[in-house]
Design a protein around this nucleic acid. Sequence first.
RNA 1: AGCCGAAUGGUGUAAUGGUAGCACGACUGAUUCUGGUUCAGUUCGUCAGGGUUCGAGUCCUUGUUCGGCUGCCA
Length: 574
Amino acid sequence: MNMTNAPLPTNFIQNIITEDLKDNKNGGRVHTRFPPEPNGYLHIGHAKSICLNFGLAVANGGICNLRFDDTNPSKEEVEYVESIQADVKWLGFDWDDRMFYASNYFDKLYEYTVGLIKAGKAYVCDLSAQEIRQYRGTLTEPGQDSPYRNRSIEENLDLFKRMRAGQFEDGARVLRAKIDMASPNINMRDPVLYRILRATHHRTGDKWCIYPMYDYAHPLSDAIENITHSVCTLEFADHRPLYDWALDQVDYAMEADGRPQQIEFARLNLTYTVMSKRKLRELVEHGYVSGWDDPRMPTISGLRRRGYTPESIRDFCDRIGVAKRDSMVDIALLEHCIREDLNLNGPRVMAVLDPLRVIIDNYPEGQVEWLEGENNPENPGMGSRQIPFSREVYIEREDFMEDPPKKFFRLAPGREIRLKSAYIIKCERVVKDDQTGAILELHCSYDPESHSGGATSGRKIKGTSHWVSAAHALKAEVRLYDHLFVDENPDDEGDGLDYKAKLNPSSLQVLTSCLVEPSLAGAAPGSRYQFMRQGYFCVDPIDTSENLLVFNRIVSLRDTWAKIQKGNESSTSA
RNA sequence: AGCCGAAUGGUGUAAUGGUAGCACGACUGAUUCUGGUUCAGUUCGUCAGGGUUCGAGUCCUUGUUCGGCUGCCA
């Protein structure tokens, strides 16, 4: 979208890179990586990281790898590696031939580790998980050395080989780094490097029964891939000394020009949504949503199904910036981004969500006129289409009021409105149900001279309504989505309420008797439109079939009238 | 309590010792055959105290508040 010479996005990471480049650090290379663990679906928070890592590389003439951080087979599945690739691609990023797996390096890592043991920097520890915890000390008290800390190198080597050979049970022993049990940084108190874990790995199958820990595998994977800037989120800041330790200890014989540097930034938080994998999984598994791609989910697949464009998400990620402080971005910014995109690129179309029949008594019975409607006033290049007009039309029920309040510019008894791209009509008579008093239909007259572009077409009429011709309209199902939570910060349990207690009961409203203009026949799944005066909608790619059009509301239009109404309500009730 | 990190309008983010800017939101008004868009404008900010300096959001210092860390998860 931004094809001009936009200034580099300025943030503290770019500043670091700019300095590094100036110093010719890493031989002037910039090489980043996006390293998800394939244990779930990507969400908008990952999109921030993806845009950052790929964006930083591109902006500085570098490259970015996709790397699956698959060191814990008990949680990982191919389903996730596939969805992650699809999502990154859909967002518009390309890793070329640089898709890697940490598991590709298991052999290499094992060799490094043997060297580490030979150098006396690691030892096999027989303590149980619970004992290790006890020996580790607390935040304020130093830990104690493991009784196995001073095993001979020979014994460590032998034990480690036997760990690999499967001679011990899961959890019986671990390999630990020999660092400092009194370190004020708990991550440095002889952290576990390898654990025994019999789980079939989605890539390596049952070849291994020992797996390296993230803290150990990650820096070495970065080094193996010649990464220069290893960008991760804030909670890993305490792990950085260990990251550096691993690089220091292992003579990885990198032909690399330089060494990777870990840089931490604050993860994305969005109002009215949760972002943790655990909670998203819970929403899916307990049926609060229809799946990972439920259009209310903040997952990439959910946003995609909802109708968000990749461009709008990238734009959003550019706008939120990158910093080290925890923050909560207003979801209104995301909504602004998609509106801005679709305002320019979404064809206009008329759809009546809650139809009210209007009979135009002075319009000839049986006559049909095909009127021209521009597809996008912001973009004349998008051309126009023909819209049928006839004696019976439907308008939006809320566009008529029998007893309208002040500033109501729409239809009311004796009042006029313009039907968009057609004629001005006047409400002559209201037909109601004798029993219930419900409004059944309106009888109107039209001004034949008021055709768009016609003689009296210049007459000023305050209100313009969208409409469809009764004889030509197509039935459709429309799903109105709203925020998944009613609370701005569902994660905040300060009020004693679990995030699930803050689910929005009306986050989904299904309308089954909507009528849309006939040009929408056969609309492509996934295509996006502006339903005039209502919002942006997307043809649901899953549930739309040949005999049923299903639309998802991506986002409503900004609605000044709704605000005025709200103001009216509160002022009358006050 | 120990270590680490962060504090700039309602929200997010710039300003690398020199005019506190941009975006979103909110609010006015104008335009409009979408109560959309567009345009014009308004509102609102450097956590606190002390210090260095001709000059401090930025450097020093003390404090306050918030976040992270005691997995054989990542």
